[in-house]
Protein backbone atom coordinates (compact mmCIF):
# COMPACT_ATOMS: atom_id res chain seq x y z
CA UNK A 1 0.00 0.00 0.00
CA UNK A 2 1.17 3.52 -0.76
CA UNK A 3 0.18 6.54 1.32
CA UNK A 4 0.53 10.05 -0.06
CA UNK A 5 -0.06 13.17 2.01
CA UNK A 6 -0.83 16.34 0.03
CA UNK A 7 -0.88 19.86 1.34
CA UNK A 8 -0.97 23.47 0.28
CA UNK A 9 -2.94 26.67 0.49
CA UNK A 10 -6.66 26.89 -0.24
CA UNK A 11 -7.48 27.74 -3.83
CA UNK A 12 -4.18 26.48 -5.26
CA UNK A 13 -5.31 23.07 -6.49
CA UNK A 14 -4.39 20.63 -3.71
CA UNK A 15 -7.74 18.87 -3.92
CA UNK A 16 -7.63 18.72 -7.72
CA UNK A 17 -4.17 17.16 -7.45
CA UNK A 18 -5.26 14.56 -4.90
CA UNK A 19 -8.29 13.81 -7.07
CA UNK A 20 -6.07 13.15 -10.09
CA UNK A 21 -3.80 10.89 -8.04
CA UNK A 22 -6.75 8.93 -6.62
CA UNK A 23 -8.37 8.49 -10.04
CA UNK A 24 -5.07 7.40 -11.58
CA UNK A 25 -4.59 4.81 -8.82
CA UNK A 26 -8.13 3.50 -9.33
CA UNK A 27 -7.59 3.24 -13.10
CA UNK A 28 -4.34 1.39 -12.42
CA UNK A 29 -6.45 -1.25 -10.67
CA UNK A 30 -5.91 -0.41 -7.01
CA UNK A 31 -8.29 -0.03 -4.12
CA UNK A 32 -8.23 3.67 -3.20
CA UNK A 33 -9.17 5.89 -0.31
CA UNK A 34 -8.96 9.66 -0.45
CA UNK A 35 -9.71 12.00 2.41
CA UNK A 36 -9.82 15.75 2.60
CA UNK A 37 -11.02 18.57 4.76
CA UNK A 38 -12.38 21.36 2.61
CA UNK A 39 -14.83 23.38 4.67
CA UNK A 40 -13.12 26.68 3.93
CA UNK A 41 -10.74 25.67 1.18
CA UNK A 42 -11.34 28.77 -0.93
CA UNK A 43 -10.52 31.17 1.89
CA UNK A 44 -6.73 30.87 1.84
CA UNK A 45 -6.29 28.51 4.79
CA UNK A 46 -4.10 25.41 4.94
CA UNK A 47 -5.64 22.51 3.02
CA UNK A 48 -4.64 18.86 3.37
CA UNK A 49 -5.69 15.74 1.55
CA UNK A 50 -4.62 12.12 1.93
CA UNK A 51 -4.57 9.42 -0.73
CA UNK A 52 -3.89 5.74 -0.06
CA UNK A 53 -3.89 2.96 -2.64
CA UNK A 54 -3.03 -0.72 -2.75
CA UNK A 55 -4.63 -4.14 -2.97
CA UNK A 56 -6.92 -3.39 -0.04
CA UNK A 57 -7.13 -0.12 1.87
CA UNK A 58 -9.26 0.45 4.95
CA UNK A 59 -8.52 3.74 6.68
CA UNK A 60 -8.64 6.92 4.57
CA UNK A 61 -6.37 8.50 7.20
CA UNK A 62 -2.63 7.83 7.12
CA UNK A 63 -1.09 6.81 10.47
CA UNK A 64 1.41 9.44 11.66
CA UNK A 65 4.93 9.04 10.33
CA UNK A 66 4.04 6.42 7.72
CA UNK A 67 3.35 8.45 4.56
CA UNK A 68 5.50 7.27 1.65
CA UNK A 69 5.36 10.68 0.02
CA UNK A 70 4.51 14.22 1.01
CA UNK A 71 3.57 16.53 -1.86
CA UNK A 72 3.31 20.18 -0.93
CA UNK A 73 2.28 23.03 -3.19
CA UNK A 74 3.87 25.53 -0.79
CA UNK A 75 7.09 25.59 1.26
CA UNK A 76 5.71 26.52 4.69
CA UNK A 77 2.90 23.98 4.42
CA UNK A 78 5.48 21.28 3.70
CA UNK A 79 7.18 22.11 6.99
CA UNK A 80 3.91 21.96 8.85
CA UNK A 81 3.09 18.52 7.48
CA UNK A 82 6.57 16.93 7.91
CA UNK A 83 5.63 14.62 10.82
CA UNK A 84 3.27 12.67 8.53
CA UNK A 85 6.21 11.48 6.42
CA UNK A 86 8.34 8.44 7.23
CA UNK A 87 12.05 9.18 7.48
CA UNK A 88 12.92 7.44 4.24
CA UNK A 89 9.88 8.87 2.47
CA UNK A 90 9.93 11.34 -0.41
CA UNK A 91 9.25 15.03 0.00
CA UNK A 92 8.20 16.91 -3.15
CA UNK A 93 7.81 20.65 -2.67
CA UNK A 94 6.68 23.33 -5.05
CA UNK A 95 9.21 26.14 -4.59
CA UNK A 96 6.68 28.76 -3.74
CA UNK A 97 6.37 31.07 -0.73
CA UNK A 98 2.87 32.22 0.11
CA UNK A 99 2.91 34.51 3.12
CA UNK A 100 -0.10 33.95 5.38
CA UNK A 101 -2.53 36.87 5.46
CA UNK A 102 -1.48 39.43 8.07
CA UNK A 103 -3.02 38.79 11.47
CA UNK A 104 -2.29 42.31 12.64
CA UNK A 105 1.05 43.85 13.50
CA UNK A 106 2.46 41.15 15.72
CA UNK A 107 2.92 37.96 13.84
CA UNK A 108 5.20 34.96 13.61
CA UNK A 109 7.51 35.57 10.64
CA UNK A 110 7.71 33.23 7.67
CA UNK A 111 10.79 31.05 8.37
CA UNK A 112 13.76 32.31 6.37
CA UNK A 113 15.53 28.98 6.16
CA UNK A 114 12.47 27.08 5.01
CA UNK A 115 14.41 25.00 2.47
CA UNK A 116 17.02 23.87 4.98
CA UNK A 117 14.29 22.99 7.47
CA UNK A 118 12.60 20.86 4.81
CA UNK A 119 15.85 19.01 4.20
CA UNK A 120 16.43 18.22 7.88
CA UNK A 121 15.54 14.64 8.65
CA UNK A 122 14.18 13.75 5.21
CA UNK A 123 16.28 11.53 2.98
CA UNK A 124 14.82 12.51 -0.37
CA UNK A 125 13.73 16.08 -0.96
CA UNK A 126 12.95 17.46 -4.39
CA UNK A 127 12.22 21.16 -4.76
CA UNK A 128 10.15 21.51 -7.91
CA UNK A 129 9.83 24.94 -9.58
CA UNK A 130 6.26 24.00 -10.42
CA UNK A 131 4.93 27.51 -10.19
CA UNK A 132 7.59 28.86 -12.56
CA UNK A 133 7.14 25.93 -14.93
CA UNK A 134 3.39 26.37 -15.03
CA UNK A 135 3.78 30.10 -15.59
CA UNK A 136 6.15 29.44 -18.48
CA UNK A 137 3.60 27.03 -19.94
CA UNK A 138 0.99 29.74 -19.80
CA UNK A 139 -1.05 29.25 -16.62
CA UNK A 140 0.18 29.17 -13.02
CA UNK A 141 -2.88 27.13 -12.08
CA UNK A 142 -1.24 24.09 -13.69
CA UNK A 143 1.42 23.99 -10.95
CA UNK A 144 -0.48 21.15 -9.27
CA UNK A 145 -0.25 18.99 -12.39
CA UNK A 146 3.48 19.75 -12.64
CA UNK A 147 3.67 18.22 -9.15
CA UNK A 148 1.69 15.19 -10.32
CA UNK A 149 4.30 14.70 -13.05
CA UNK A 150 7.12 15.07 -10.53
CA UNK A 151 5.48 12.47 -8.28
CA UNK A 152 4.85 10.02 -11.13
CA UNK A 153 8.57 9.23 -11.33
CA UNK A 154 8.35 7.82 -7.81
CA UNK A 155 5.17 5.84 -8.55
CA UNK A 156 6.11 3.31 -11.22
CA UNK A 157 3.03 1.27 -10.27
CA UNK A 158 0.94 3.84 -12.17
CA UNK A 159 1.85 3.91 -15.87
CA UNK A 160 2.31 7.10 -17.87
CA UNK A 161 -0.63 6.03 -20.05
CA UNK A 162 -2.86 5.94 -16.97
CA UNK A 163 -1.69 9.39 -15.86
CA UNK A 164 -2.29 10.85 -19.32
CA UNK A 165 -5.73 9.28 -19.52
CA UNK A 166 -6.61 10.58 -16.04
CA UNK A 167 -5.42 14.11 -16.76
CA UNK A 168 -7.33 14.18 -20.04
CA UNK A 169 -10.48 13.15 -18.21
CA UNK A 170 -9.93 15.67 -15.41
CA UNK A 171 -9.90 18.84 -17.50
CA UNK A 172 -12.10 20.53 -20.05
CA UNK A 173 -10.84 20.16 -23.65
CA UNK A 174 -9.38 23.68 -23.77
CA UNK A 175 -7.15 22.96 -20.74
CA UNK A 176 -6.03 19.43 -21.63
CA UNK A 177 -2.99 20.30 -23.70
CA UNK A 178 -1.61 22.70 -21.09
CA UNK A 179 -2.01 20.16 -18.31
CA UNK A 180 -0.45 17.34 -20.31
CA UNK A 181 2.54 19.61 -20.91
CA UNK A 182 2.61 20.44 -17.21
CA UNK A 183 2.60 16.74 -16.33
CA UNK A 184 5.44 15.96 -18.73
CA UNK A 185 7.48 18.92 -17.49
CA UNK A 186 7.13 17.74 -13.91
CA UNK A 187 8.01 14.18 -14.82
CA UNK A 188 11.03 15.32 -16.79
CA UNK A 189 12.20 17.37 -13.82
CA UNK A 190 12.35 14.43 -11.40
CA UNK A 191 13.38 11.81 -13.97
CA UNK A 192 16.60 13.72 -14.68
CA UNK A 193 17.16 14.86 -11.11
Amino acid sequence: MKSVFLTGVGGHGVLKLSGILAEAALTAGFDVRKSEIHGMSQRGGSVVSQVRYGNRVHSPLIPAGTADALISLELLEALRALPCLRRNGILLVNEQHITPAPLGRHRVPYPENVRELCEDGVETVVFVPAHAVARALGNVRAANVVMAGAFSTFAPEISVEVWVHTIEAAFRPEHRELNLHAFRAGKYFTATD
Binding site: T66, P83, R86, R87
Partner: peptide, 19 residues
Amino acid sequence: LGGDGVEAVDEQLPVRPPV
Protein backbone atom coordinates in the same frame (compact mmCIF):
# COMPACT_ATOMS: atom_id res chain seq x y z
CA LEU B 1 1.72 0.94 13.02
CA GLY B 2 5.34 1.52 12.03
CA GLY B 3 5.28 5.28 12.35
CA ASP B 4 8.85 6.55 12.15
CA GLY B 5 8.14 10.07 11.13
CA VAL B 6 10.26 13.07 10.35
CA GLU B 7 10.43 15.25 13.42
CA ALA B 8 8.38 18.41 13.57
CA VAL B 9 10.49 21.56 13.19
CA ASP B 10 11.46 23.28 16.43
CA GLU B 11 10.58 26.80 15.54
CA GLN B 12 7.11 28.24 15.72
CA LEU B 13 5.47 28.35 12.33
CA PRO B 14 3.07 31.11 11.31
CA VAL B 15 -0.49 29.83 11.31
CA ARG B 16 -2.57 29.96 8.15
CA PRO B 17 -6.23 30.10 9.14
CA PRO B 18 -8.91 30.78 6.54
CA VAL B 19 -9.45 34.52 6.10
